[in-house]
Simulated scan of single mutants.
Amino acid sequence: MPELPEVETTRRGIHPYVEHNTIRSVTIRERRLRWPVSDELTTLSMALVHKLERRAKYLILHLPKGYIIIHLGMSGNLRVVENNTPIGKHDHVDLNMNDGKIIRYNDPRRFGSVLWVKDWESHSLFSKLGPEPLEASFNADYLHKQAKDKTTGIKQFIMDNKNVVGVGNIYANEALFLSGIHPKRPAGKLSKKRISKFVDHIKKTLETAITQGGTTLKDFVGGDGKPGYFQQQLKVYGRGGQPCTECKTTLKEIRLGQRSTVYCPKCQH
């Protein structure tokens, strides 16, 4: 599933072709995504995109009379293509730009969404989201306060979007390893010092992944159609049964919250 770095990579890739450009029209070939593609999109004509931003794993296009919200789901991607590019089997929605380019939404599994709303900030998708992990509001003081008295394991705690958005499974595994924290350690049992180190590694891990274009494990590609390369730097995710890069102990793989979790029994405690 595309996580925050992949979505941010996509935002940066399509930004030059979308922001301050005009959507001439929208073509919908398949409405049956996670939620039905909004009918209102077919009525858009010569709509200027004032801004393109990301909130959590959602991309939000600001238009004069509303907003387009795009979620990539499990396998979706947005690519910038020419208007004569052949249509693929899973190319479900096109934003036809006034300069002849197309922002094409492709989604083999159809778990993503393309929605039209009048006010995105009050929408139910966003009303209970925590802070962005790369913003100053996500810091040791905040996370230590949120974690106080919590018995939930730290990995599941940090992946809860009410506490912080966008720290998905891959990056939670990696940041916990770099911080030396066992994924099942109760969040409320971590000291302020360890929380501070963890916050730093979350930010650094996400920033590095964005710089590398995200992580391509199956079918993610950025807005330019290129894969991400962060998977070459993965320390634990996907490496269960292999030796730890630091101490050579065999990495252990377990399931937490129905997600694969890999950690080093020696380095993480």
Rank of each mutant, 00 (worst) to 15 (best):
P2W: 04
F177R: 04
V81M: 00
L256R: 05
E3R: 02
Q268G: 02
V80N: 08
T152H: 02
A140I: 03
P5G: 14
T27E: 15
S38F: 02
S122R: 11
D200L: 14
K248V: 11
K51M: 05
K184F: 07
K204I: 12
N21A: 13
Q258K: 10
L33E: 06
E3D: 07
E3M: 04
L41S: 10
G222H: 05
N98G: 10
G73V: 04
S25Y: 12
H71T: 11
D200R: 15
V93S: 03
V37E: 07
W120I: 02
K252V: 15
R194G: 01
V93P: 01
D160E: 09
T215D: 09
G66I: 09
K155L: 09
V49R: 04
V18L: 13
H201S: 01
S122A: 11
E82I: 03
G130Q: 10
K266N: 14
G100M: 02
R29A: 02
Y229W: 01
I28W: 06
V164H: 04
T10S: 12
K203Q: 15
I69D: 07
K57N: 09
T43N: 13
H92V: 04
Y67R: 00
K197P: 05
R12V: 08
G225M: 09
H123R: 03
G100W: 08
L129T: 05
T216M: 02
H201E: 15
I23T: 10
T261K: 06
S124W: 12
G225T: 10
E19V: 14
I28D: 07
M159T: 10
A136C: 00
V80S: 05
G153T: 05
R239Y: 01
I69S: 08
L33Q: 09
P183G: 06
I103L: 06
E174Q: 12
